[in-house]
Nucleic acid binder design. Structure first.
Lengths: 334, 334
DNA sequence: ACGTTTCCTGAAAACGTTTCCCATCCGTGG
DNA sequence: CCACGGATGGGAAACGTTTTCAGGAAACGT
């Protein structure tokens, strides 16, 4: 492989000059520049990323820290990020967080050793110490799903989303409305389900409805568990006429439980989810649309902006929510 | 940030020794080792990836070269790869190929400058020259979807898959069976659709059925285009009673067209797809199951194997295909 | 007692860039 | 004719590791 030294020799200049040409630093006469460019071409020279990162102290990459890459919502966001970054030549590196321990481990790696040019952190909130580290090393991560004032972030108002979903059900005439969500205070510190739950309670209160605890259940994320919970709900003496699941994945579990119990949707049971993941449209699931792919796209834009101008101010992007009415919700029968 | 030199000083040894400890190279007395480990701990030292890559001439990463990350089949495979690699501390970098030009560009980068420890290349076949480059720099990529003898690869027999799908339809009694596939000889050199098409023709021939050209259509990948094609097929004077789409994405387009044309599935039209992507189960689509996620998982295993033992022989993994009968296929009405 | 091996350790040369700082050249105004 | 300044170019010191090579100490057999 040709190195910068070979190019310099061939062009009859110093390596400094070649470096300046490669990095478009100016200070090089047109003619010299052409000679260097020619030499680069002839030798098919490509700068070594590793060698560049060393003195620059930053890896030419954008790291994406994402819990549970398999979750459909994570997938959509990562796609958005990859697509948004495609216009640049920056590779995307995926750091999957599957256990709580991974989280701070990866966060430390990002700030202390790997040092990418940019980073996107999804659904995770670092500790104060880690936040300070980021600032210290001038890494400006973009956060998705966490409203962290010191950095750019893009997020939604989960509580309002919960209100929206619940209001839709109330508006249809439902009175016995159940909620199924994730475990609150889980080890990852996710808060969206808890906030959607809060929105549910608020909406009920405003409508003068009591939020009965037997209608509010939480469990580990996943459609299987949610199916189980929905089954319990449906076999209650006075089962709910509508269920708000804090994610589409869970709503799908509810639909499965209803099918097994031969409970007709939406005539006997209304179901509303949250997120609008890809499958939801096919399933006809009524849900609160959460612009997931777009959030990735925007995150990519912000990362690019921060790379171009490291000193630019943090931006705050709140995405709009909207309920998408499809065929799993309707008025209660009685 | 502490460097290896700081650690060496603190432990009262030479950097060489610290390096040996970090890399588990042995040759270090227990007691010295402990001192070094203690120093590392006290200084919270983390080796710099960039600095390591330079003399090692390899980046600590596995690169995944994948065309169209948004395609559901690509998503499943990437997930498999990420999961398979999670047991190691190797980050995954995604190289998205969206235009034919990206392909050789990324391939060159991989071999010539970036030089990851491992790579997996999905659905792409590099030129002879590029293959030679890989061997030259001792990068052993793992191929998915391409049977390249010089390297490890994991793939399916697309032609047989086409036969399987078509036989299923023939077995149900269909005679007028259409095929919808991707453009053949596209600029990326994908061959799976063409091979599945070949299987379709072979199966018809064996069954003594004529493969009529008006029943065989190709177009750019995507459910919209496929919907359009299916629409044409369904408005033929003697429309097919069954359609084999060379991917589930296309089969979904067919289902949409049928719905629009008020053609009942499976009574008036049978539809079979290929791949068994995630949504297919929800849609009840009969399809040929292609173990996508597993292929990623296996690819990760092979990459790990090659990293551990760079001289190990290339492996060849052919995955089994199976038709999953769901509710979009049935006997023809007449 | 003396070579020989084995084990452990260290010095220093890579690895391929970037960048700070200095030298030269040329034109310009005094 | 001289000093000056901007444009252009180069030398060499980082950046933080790995690795080759050599050397010293300890253990071993004779």
């Amino acid at each position: 492989m040709a190195t910068i030294i070979d190019v310099a020799k061939r062009a009859g200049v110093a390596v400094t000059t070649v470096s300046r040409v490669i990095n478009d630093k100016g200070q090089v006469k047109e003619e010299t520049r052409d000679r260097v460019l020619a030499a680069i071409d002839e030798l098919a020279y490509r700068p070594s990323p590793a060698a560049r990162s060393l003195p620059r102290k930053r890896a030419h990459a954008v790291s994406v820290l994402v819990p549970f890459v398999t979750h459909p919502s994570a997938v959509a966001r990562v796609q958005g990020i990859v697509h948004g970054l495609r216009k640049t030549d920056i590779p995307v590196t995926i750091l999957d967080v599957e256990k709580p321990a991974h989280q701070s481990e990866h966060l430390d790696t990002l700030a202390s050793s790997y040092r990418p040019e940019g980073a996107v952190i999804i659904s995770l909130v670092p500790s104060e110490r880690q936040l300070a580290r980021f600032a210290e090393v001038e890494l400006c991560p973009v956060f998705i799903d966490a409203d962290i004032p010191e950095f750019s972030r893009i997020f939604i108002d989960d509580r309002t989303g919960g209100v929206l979903a619940t209001d839709h059900l109330i508006g249809l005439g439902h009175r016995r409305i159940a909620f199924i969500g994730d475990i609150e205070n889980g080890s990852f510190g996710f808060e969206s389900s808890a906030k959607r739950h809060q929105g549910y309670r608020d909406a009920l209160r405003v409508a003068g409805l009591e939020a009965e605890s037997r209608y509010q259940r939480t469990g580990p994320h996943g459609s299987d568990i949610s199916r189980q919970i929905a089954h319990e709900l449906l076999t209650l003496p006075d089962p709910p006429t509508a269920i708000f699941a804090s994610s589409d994945t869970q709503a799908i579990g509810v639909m499965e439980a209803a099918k097994e119990a031969r409970v007709k949707i939406p005539t006997e049971l209304s179901v509303i989810g949250f997120d609008d993941i890809e499958i939801s449209a096919y399933l006809g699931l009524t849900t609160v649309r959460h612009p997931l792919y777009e959030s990735g796209l925007i995150a990519a834009e912000l990362v690019i902006e921060h790379i171009r101008d490291p000193s630019c101010a943090p931006r705050r992007v709140e995405q709009e929510l909207e309920v998408i009415v499809r065929s799993t919700t309707g008025p209660p029968r009685d």
